[in-house]
């Protein structure tokens, strides 16, 4: 049984529930091991081509996917789409089919519009991976977050995770809520009502507007990026007030239990949602998240392009000669 229900990864719900997510995490273990080798590269996806279709700037996510693909020996190409061509009314369908016509096996899509990868998946035969779509989802981020928590706490199940900040506009929050709760965690959303989704019907979470009350009870404090434009939208009066009420300040970090972890999807606004010195505390897993992101994305690309139904990765044998590793 593949951990994936279909041939795309558009949202966390494309994974076969808890079993599916756990299977991806086990596979990720293998790729973490690969990443720690002197030559962190395997020929698993040799001959496969992965294209980046990024309608939105994203250095870190694209680099992470690109590193993952290269460590699997896939060929990669970058189809950068300027936002102006979107404004000119270029058909998303035309763009996707153009890329596919070049013989692409997987398209990794980042788009500022919710549902764009979903639409593309209906027009192409290639596998589509959602690398973040508007406010909707960012499934590989959720997988790497879950993996990082499991790495440090042994499991996600049974732990209390607070997701703090701009939930309303956050694709990370939507994917994390789905992944964490599917894995059996208790999730509390902490935000002012203006930064919560208009409805939480069907979300298995609790909500709090009081970060000080929540922090002593959590195993993980997951902070979201607070964007400056939210002030002009009258969602918060000022960044200063936001930091005072919902920022993980030095003082507030002391409310955390000694074993609690701090996470953030990046890029951080130091001094806004997280104090600089808190971001650098040993309990902060922000760089672990980045590191695990590569292995998780290797697992996802491998599942979509290499494994089929076979979950034991046969192609993780070491590449003997550096010459053979040419990407």
């Amino acid at each position: 049984m593949s951990p994936l229900l279909g041939r795309h990864l558009l949202g966390v719900e494309d994974l076969d529930g808890r079993e599916g997510i756990e299977a991806v995490m086990r596979l990720t273990d293998s790729f973490v091991e690969v990443s720690e080798r002197a030559i962190p590269k395997v020929p698993a996806l040799r001959g496969k081509t992965v294209a980046w279709l990024f309608y939105e700037d994203s250095t870190r996510t694209r680099l992470s996917f690109e590193t993952a693909a290269k460590r699997l020996s896939a060929d990669t190409m970058n189809f950068s789409v300027s936002s102006s061509s979107v404004k000119k009314g270029e058909s998303l369908r035309d763009t996707a089919r153009t890329i596919e016509a070049m013989g692409i096996d997987a398209i990794v899509v980042r788009h500022s519009s919710a549902g764009a990868p979903h639409r593309i998946s209906g027009w192409v035969d290639a596998a589509v991976v959602n690398a973040g779509d508007g406010w909707h989802q960012h499934p590989t981020q959720a997988l790497l977050d879950a993996y990082t928590i499991r790495q440090h706490l042994g499991s996600v199940e049974g732990h209390h995770i607070a997701i703090i900040g701009d939930i309303k506009h956050s694709r990370v929050a939507r994917s994390d809520v789905a992944a964490f709760t599917t894995l059996g965690a208790r999730v509390t959303l902490v935000a002012p009502p203006t930064l919560l989704p208009p409805s939480l019907e069907g979300w298995p979470v609790t909500v709090s507007h009081d970060l000080d009350a929540v922090l002593p009870t959590v195993d993980v404090a997951y902070l979201l990026r607070m964007q400056r434009e939210r002030m002009t939208e009258a969602l918060v009066p000022s960044l200063r007030e936001y930091t005072a009420t919902f920022g993980l300040t030095r003082r507030r970090a002391e409310l955390l239990s000694p074993d609690a972890l701090v996470m953030h999807p990046g890029p951080m606004n130091r001094g806004v949602e997280i104090a600089a010195e808190v971001a650098d505390l040993p309990c902060s897993l922000i760089l672990d998240q980045v590191r695990n992101g590569v292995a998780v994305r290797m697992a996802v690309l491998y599942l979509l392009l290499g494994a089929g139904a076979d979950l034991v990765p046969p192609a993780l044998d070491r590449t003997q000669e550096p010459e053979a590793v040419r990407a």
Partner: peptide, 15 residues
């Protein structure tokens, strides 16, 4: 429409 579905789909809603 702003509501359960817009929240889930991440599409900006109008009440």
């Amino acid at each position: 429409h702003e509501g359960e579905w817009s929240a889930r789909l991440g599409i900006p809603g109008q009440p």
